[in-house]
Structures are given as C-alpha cells and as structure tokens.
Design a protein around this nucleic acid. Structure first.
Lengths: 155, 155
DNA sequence: ATAATATAGTTTCATATGTAACTAATTTGC
DNA sequence: GCAAATTAGTTACATATGAAACTATATTAT
C-alpha cells in the first residue's frame, strides 16, 4: 500500500508570524504602559520625540520615514505633542509646506528622563541573553525585516 | 578636567521593542492581506479557524487562551465565522454557558487550502536563514517571550 | 434552598487607526 | 509665465479595538 502523503500541518503556536505578533504586542503593551503612566505619552508620540531627540529640526515627513509611521499617525502625534508643549513647530523658510519640528525645553527634559527608562526596559527584555545571543538576535531580525519588506531602507 | 559622563543614548532604529514592532507589523500586514484577498478572512478569524483545525470542539474561552486573543476579539471573530458559515456552534450539555465550536465542511475546506499558503508565507520569510539560524530564532523568541511575560504558559 | 459570587459570552461605548478626500504650497512641462 | 501635476500636512469618514457593563448560567456558602 502507498504512503499517505502527509498533509502539511500548521501548529499555530509554532508559526513564526503568529509568535512574532504575540511577542511584539506583549512588549509594546508593556512599554506603552510605561510611557503613558509616567508621562501621558502614546507610543507614537514617544517615537516622534525619540527621533527629534536624536535629530532635531526635521519635518513630519522625515519623521515618518525614519519611524515607519504613516503621515496621518505622525500628524496626530505631532498635534498632541504641540498641545502638551513637548515640541514646537515653525514653518520652513525655503518651503512653506514644510514644518520644522523641535523639542521644547520641556520636551528635552522629558526625553532625558525617558531614555534611561526605555533602555532599562530593553535591558530587562534581553538580559537573559548572552552577548552573542543578542548579536544573533539583531542579525536575525535584520534578515527577517529584509525578507518581509525587500525594498526596505538599510539603516 | 573630568570626563563628561556619557549620557545614555537611544538609537530608535536599534531599539529592540521598536524593531520588533515594525517587523511584526510588516509581516502581519502581508499575511493579513493574503487571507483577506483569498478568503475574506481577518487575521483574527483565521486564528480561530487555525485553532479549531488543530483542535476541534473547544470553546471561545479556550480559543482565547490558546491564541492570546481577548474574549471580545474571539467573540467578534466567532460571530463573523458563523455568519460566513466557516464554523458551527452548539451549546455544551454540561454547561449551557459554554458554546462548543467546530469547523463546518466549508470551514475545513478553507482551512485545508489556507494551511499551505500560510506555511509558504512563513517559508518565504525564513528561507534565507540556515537551519541553525532558524533554530536560534525559535529559541531566542522563546526567551524573549518569557522575559516579556514571565507567567506565560509554556507551549 | 437560596442568596452571593463567579464564569461564558455578548453588547455598548469611547477611542484608535487607516484610507481617502482635501487644502495649501511648490515644481514641472510647455 | 501659467496650467497641470506633486508634495506636505490635515481633516473626515468608516472600521477596528479595548474596557466596562450587561445577560444568562453555574457554583459556593450558609
């Protein structure tokens, strides 16, 4: 008698896209809670501030490119941060469509406070990994990111 | 003169929670598109079907535990799948609060068609990794998941 | 036996998010 | 130099999501 061709089977709990999604949602929820409780910031608002902290005086569009946020998400985050006084906006002299964004003094202060918190949260996450494992992780994620989005910009 | 104590710095693009989130969203969006275009299923509906395909005759609460979905999300996915005829529901004899869920013939058919598609999508994602790298990835994600949610059930 | 509590699942409501339409400014093609 | 096409950013609308309230059943304690 012939072999039954074994049907390809799917074990959800071992399915990479599923595991990635559950892991990422858990991590994001933890971190979002942290930012929200301590400073009333959404994760999107924090990302905008993080980019401005690294690289002040850029535009909403540039922030979108760096953070992989779409322009509506950036616009909303920016609007909230303007209201709360964490960032300031002025029109570009060369191109009146563009708005140059910068952290305010208050924004810088908050930024300086959050950075160590964010880094500590990351450390909590990876501290059980050896240095070699951490390097592997970074490399594997880079490869996956490239496979998932072939025309992704390198960083 | 004394050294300036180097301020801990954050490079968003190297920040693990951020990278995880962007990667996971990209992968999920790709896959959700796949399910939606081919079968009109949301990712949540597909997860419910995937669990029922592995383990038929369980309840909504059990599905929630297995899939890390909250009960509202399960309820909504179930409701859509009942409407579309992919699953069936009957009350439990022992406990009338519980509803036993199963794939219908139509649901089984769709399940059998999606499984290879899902596995192919996963293969596309990991095919650039060596077997050893794939094993490392699984192990690293398991460790991260445990760090992110210490009381997580083992699988 | 019955009142209080807990559980399964649904519905409601408030908020978040994505897509598309829109406004204003700039650049391009002729 | 000006109409057509692009680009930056916002607004509007439709849908998705999460928290809390709710309904119905089951369990526990007295």
């Amino acid at each position: 008698m012939s072999d039954t061709p074994s049907k390809p089977s799917l074990r959800l709990s071992q399915f990479l896209p599923y595991r990635l999604s559950v892991l990422s949602n858990t991590v994001s929820r933890n971190i979002a809670d942290l930012y929200d409780r301590a400073f009333g910031l959404s994760i999107w608002q924090w990302r905008v501030m993080a980019v401005l902290g690294e690289n002040s005086g850029i535009t909403a569009t540039e922030i979108g490119q760096v953070t992989a946020m779409d322009k509506v998400a950036v616009s909303r985050a920016v609007s909230g941060l303007l209201d709360s006084g964490h960032i300031a906006r002025r029109a570009s002299k060369e191109d009146a469509r563009r708005a140059i964004l910068t952290l305010t003094a208050k924004g810088k202060e908050v930024y300086d406070q959050i950075v160590p918190i964010a880094l500590a949260a990351e450390r909590d996450l990876v501290e059980t990994l050896s240095g070699e494992e951490q390097a592997q992780l970074a490399s594997l994620m880079e490869k996956l990111a490239r496979a998932a989005e072939p025309d992704r910009p390198l960083w």
